[in-house]
């Protein structure tokens, strides 16, 4: 079963067309990298998938549930890390996680246990009682990922999660998410413009100026386009230097 299926999705702001007939799928338990330059439409796509924007044209299905018809059921399966930080800086890391758990209907006892478990997995348990305004950028991102996992989602969406992190921080975060994908069978859609975040066994969707210009396993993109690397393939597809 597909964790996420996007079918002929289009969106515009006034007369400005941002997405045009976008279609792709993310299989259950797979890591899919949504690759696109700044302004390619990745964040708009995330907003449509999460129901922040209403998709007038096309369909978004999460585990076969149409987002437009049953947003609550579809959202219950999703964990989301937005491009903009969404932590409440007045609250501690633990309080942020428990707030999210409450929104997803988790009982208090379970919420407390799970917040410790997720923060421990992401190696930030020692900051559970610290206000998030006191955490570093990398720690905040980890807390956001821990929060997105609180309700046990089967699909994790991350919109440029490594933006603003240093290289070791980026690698550590990427590794954590890959471990999650492997150990828990969570499907991941990871939007980025960093080509080095693509691994050989990932699936890749290349988005350029609102259109999908390539979709498939990462290890096939370069051979199919007759180039030597993912970076060259991306440059060829998007016309970037």
């Amino acid at each position: 079963m597909n964790a996420l299926a996007i079918e002929n999705l289009s969106h515009s702001f006034g007369t400005r067309q941002v997405l045009q007939n976008v279609s792709f799928t993310v299989a259950e338990g797979r890591m899919c990298i949504l690759l696109g330059r700044n302004g390619a439409g990745k964040t708009t796509l995330f907003s449509l998938i999460t129901g922040l924007y209403y998709a007038r044209t096309g369909l978004v299905r999460v585990f076969d549930m149409a987002m437009q018809a049953n947003p609550s059921a579809a959202l219950a399966q999703m964990g989301v890390v937005f491009q903009l930080p969404t932590l409440d800086l007045d609250l501690t890391a633990g309080e942020n996680l428990r707030y999210h758990a409450a929104l997803h209907g988790l009982p208090t006892k379970l919420s407390k246990a799970r917040s410790r478990e997720e923060l421990s997995r992401l190696e930030v348990l020692d900051r559970i009682d610290d206000r998030t305004c006191a955490l570093s950028g990398g720690q905040r991102r980890r807390v956001e990922i821990a929060r997105a996992l609180m309700h046990g989602p089967r699909l994790l969406l991350l919109d440029e999660p490594t933006t603003g992190l240093d290289v070791p921080g980026r690698r550590a975060l990427e590794q954590h998410v890959r471990d999650l994908c492997r150990e828990r069978g969570i499907a991941v859609l990871w939007a980025t413009h960093f080509l080095e975040e693509v691994a050989a066994d990932d699936d890749v969707v290349v988005l350029d100026r609102g259109r999908v210009c390539w979709a498939g396993p990462a290890d096939r993109i370069a051979p199919e386009l007759g180039v030597g690397s993912v970076a060259e393939a991306f440059a060829l597809l998007t016309g970037s230097p």
């Binding site: 922040l52 959202l75 989301v80 937005f82 903009l84 969404t86 707030y99 999210h100 929104l103 997803h104």
Partner: peptide, 18 residues
């Protein structure tokens, strides 16, 4: 503006209720 409103609005409950 800070983004935390997104968290509330993507909770699996009807928006009017939230």
């Amino acid at each position: 503006e800070m983004g935390s409103m997104r968290l509330l609005l993507t909770a699996p409950l009807p928006r009017w209720y939230l």
